[in-house]
Design a protein around this nucleic acid. Sequence first.
RNA 1: CGAGCCGGACAUACGGUCGCGGGCCGCGGAAGCGGCGUGAGGAAAGUCCGAGCAUCGCAGGGCAAGGAUGCCUGCUAACGGCAGGAGGAGGCGACUCCAAGGAAAGUGAACAGAAAUACACCGCAGCUUUUCGGCUGUAAGGUUGGAAUGGCGAGGUAAGAGCUCACCGUCGCCCCGGCAACGGGGCGAGCCAAUUAAACCCCAUCCGAUGCAAGAUUGGGAUAAGGGCUGCGUUCGAUCGCAGGGCUGCCCGUCCGUCCUUAUCCGUUAAUAUCGCUUUAACCUGCAGGCGACUGCCGGUAUAGAUAGAUGACCGUACACGACAGAACUCGGCUUACAGGCCGGUCUCGGAUG
RNA 2: GCUUCCGUAGUUAAAUGGAUAUAACAGCCCCCUCCUAAGGGGCCGUUGUGGGUUCGAUUCCCGCCGGGAGUA
Length: 107
Amino acid sequence: MNYERLKKNTDILRLFRQGKRAHSDSLTFVYLPAGKIKMAVIVSKKHGKAVKRNRIKRLLREAFFRNVPNVPFGCSVLVIPREAERYSLEKFSADMKKCCRKMACQR
RNA sequence: CGAGCCGGACAUACGGUCGCGGGCCGCGGAAGCGGCGUGAGGAAAGUCCGAGCAUCGCAGGGCAAGGAUGCCUGCUAACGGCAGGAGGAGGCGACUCCAAGGAAAGUGAACAGAAAUACACCGCAGCUUUUCGGCUGUAAGGUUGGAAUGGCGAGGUAAGAGCUCACCGUCGCCCCGGCAACGGGGCGAGCCAAUUAAACCCCAUCCGAUGCAAGAUUGGGAUAAGGGCUGCGUUCGAUCGCAGGGCUGCCCGUCCGUCCUUAUCCGUUAAUAUCGCUUUAACCUGCAGGCGACUGCCGGUAUAGAUAGAUGACCGUACACGACAGAACUCGGCUUACAGGCCGGUCUCGGAUG
RNA sequence: GCUUCCGUAGUUAAAUGGAUAUAACAGCCCCCUCCUAAGGGGCCGUUGUGGGUUCGAUUCCCGCCGGGAGUA
């Protein structure tokens, strides 16, 4: 199993307008059904300077890579983290699993 | 031995598994798959200066406006940078720091104070007057202030005053040293010309504007068919075999992403495509010149190039237990942030021992 | 990424280099009233921050910190 990067600005804007949301403690999913699993990470400037933001992006990508088998159906996803004091891979991974379960229920 | 000063280099290291960007090679018509090696910094940061490069403007030269710089000489592609020197300030010292041209072109400078380059309030003294007082001289003393007719002593005088003299300061001229800034010495002027230019200003030198989101190139979309991207087993392997995928496990039914090739149809707009995009005032070693910044020559090295934006996760070993921090067109500087230890010096000061 | 502007009471603003930084509204305290409102008086500032120039800086110069705007 693998996923693709979501790159187009128009796609992301469409997701923000029309997408459904699934929340958890540390992050939020914004998603719409699609044929393949596509993902984009969004980290805003309020999370810190470049080194901090890069660190969060890498952790989120690694967590998503591990959680691809849990995604219930093909969809485009935006992953948006919340502000926190510390960020860890275990927390992100567990919360992603929760979000995937919520998506399955909402369908 | 302790406390310092100056300069330089580093800034977790090594191995394994999975994953990401780009390069080369192999298979393939292509998409793609596999292998090999490669992938952030000393500040990549702030965007404060200087250049390259690109577009627009512009015959050439001058002037005005606006902006920048400001001791001297050099280095450099250039600079507001650097080096060496001059002057000033700090330190016992090694050494460090300094926005440092012109006030004899002109204007301005609150309040206080009599007065701010000058106009006499008190005082001091002379003349006058019955007295109160008036006139004149005077910057020694008082008051105010950040700053008061250069400071201090002596002579001098009615009282005083560079009025005169010695020393110091200031200014001018001459001589000597230096490319110069400037330094040393001599003679003279009795001070006319206080301070402030990161106040206006004057003088000298420099500057066209915008910035890679600059700019250049390429026609795009829809539908259909075929193939790839996926999973499992197998193989040393890029080999071979089976299964399209999702909708709760199966059947029916239904839905369908993206890439490539071919065909058909619509039809003229500028990308999310390609170039710019990384090999250049480059880095390293050695030799020569120079006090030095730096320059010349011989030899060697190839060292990120993304485009929603690549360095992460897990495990093991070691210790000092890892600071500040992430390229975005590219260089030369400046400024700011930074755990820590390492190397060098005929370097400085103090103590002890010989 | 590039360009550019702004930081003054709790808020919105003002202030030629010159006394203790000025208004309005808000907050707190006091007076007035039997009580409240209105009214009167007072309090509330490291002028974002660190240096420099100056006799003197909110103002002039330099370095940081924070916030906003424009640009495909």
